[in-house]
Design a protein around this nucleic acid. Structure first.
Lengths: 221, 221
DNA sequence: CCGACTTCAGTGACATTGTCACTCTGCGTT
DNA sequence: AACGCAGAGTGACAATGTCACTGAAGTCGG
């Protein structure tokens, strides 16, 4: 299966002149990952820049204790800068990238990347914007974790994970990993939400009964 | 007072050819900030890239509640990418940069910055490395805040703030702002440290009596 | 030097969150 | 049906954050 002209899909490449794009199409490698596969981790750092064409990549951080927190998600059309960041800073880090769905990505080699960054202002801007986005994402995480209440964060996360759907398919443990807290804590808060009629629960699923109330709780952020 | 050939002081500019450096020296503006001055804040974003020639810039984030946490410090020879990040991402953020000492910085305009990024691989590398460093700094903050114990963090911070000195000049409130916690919490932990003979206290100052023990505590990270 | 003020630190009661050691339950497997 | 296991519930306790204070240490004008 081919993915066609992926240069069409990125702000950073869409506006490049035809010859450059052709060169890109020729030189870049298409990488695929199965759902659930680890894209990068502390002991497995890919040495090229990833552009996500399809799917969602979940980036999280894990403590020695085993507790985990989701830092952000990379969606189609975005690039994953964290691995490059680590290459450049040459420092250990404990973030991990997991394919939340099946992924199709374009991998640019270090040289191609640098060449593009040198020659194409649009591409440069795209990459800097990608870095910026992640910086701001992390600022937001710090803010939430350092100053936010757990019920507020859970309500917000449930709404985000549900999207347009009425149900979230996640265990209490999954939700705890989203927020960087413990399963018991999620259980308690969901219990409370349930008593107040905001959600109903089944094994591995949470149904949102009152989006409105949840939104209100999430907004006391 | 002049600051001489500052291009000598940055990895990103040191290796540039003479003509480029001369152009830089001519076009860049030297900015000075007094100790305690706000360099940037949510409602005052400078529109250029800052290179710190002298001094220390403290970057922190403040919650609506008023609680604050120090995200990282920018030292001489480093660049402050956060403001540029926000320009590019065009999003609100609540980080603030404060001159911890008197600062001397070089401000590059957007255009000069882009020009350099286009033409000079060394400069490009420097800037990407700067972004990367901050990303990793923030990963570390998230890790600490989400998973770390307060006594461990305080011990580490005391040692870091002291440097080679035996005393830290900071109120409990200052220390709380460093860690993103409340003054009372710092008081309690310092009280405990004091009882164990690790520190002694005076108004606005903490003297480190046993670096060794503090290091041991900080290491249970 | 005195008293008024302000900043800094200490304290106890209580709320929230995290940890531990369980139990119980739903659901598939054999 | 019996078993095994992941998911969820629970109570006790520890750690941290919040609130409302008190008291102590510097500062300043007179």
């Amino acid at each position: 299966m081919t993915i066609g002209d992926w240069t069409e899909r990125f702000h950073g490449t869409r506006s490049l002149p035809r010859p450059v794009r052709d060169r890109l199409l020729a030189s870049a490698r298409v990488a695929r990952y199965a759902r659930g596969q680890t894209v990068f981790s502390p002991d497995n750092r890919p040495d090229n820049l990833l552009f996500l064409v399809e799917g969602t990549l979940r980036v999280s951080q894990t403590a020695e204790s085993g507790r985990e927190i989701v830092l952000y998600r990379v969606e189609a059309g975005e690039s994953c800068v964290l691995t490059t960041a680590c290459m450049l800073a040459e420092e250990a880090y404990n973030a991990e990238g997991l394919a939340e769905t099946a992924l199709v990505a374009v991998a640019l080699s270090q040289q191609t990347f640098d060449l593009l960054a040198a020659e194409e202002p649009a591409f440069r801007k795209f990459v800097f914007a990608a870095y910026s986005r992640r910086l701001l994402d992390l600022l937001h995480v710090v803010d939430e974790v350092a100053f936010g209440r757990i019920d507020v964060r859970l309500a917000a996360r449930l709404l985000a994970l549900a999207g347009p759907a009425v149900e979230v398919s996640a265990t209490h443990d999954d939700l705890a990993r989203e927020l960087g807290t413990a399963r018991e804590v999620v259980s308690r808060v969901l219990q409370d939400f349930q008593k107040r009629g905001l959600v109903s629960q089944a094994r591995g699923r949470v149904r949102l009964l009152s989006r409105e109330s949840l939104t209100r709780i999430a907004a006391s952020d």
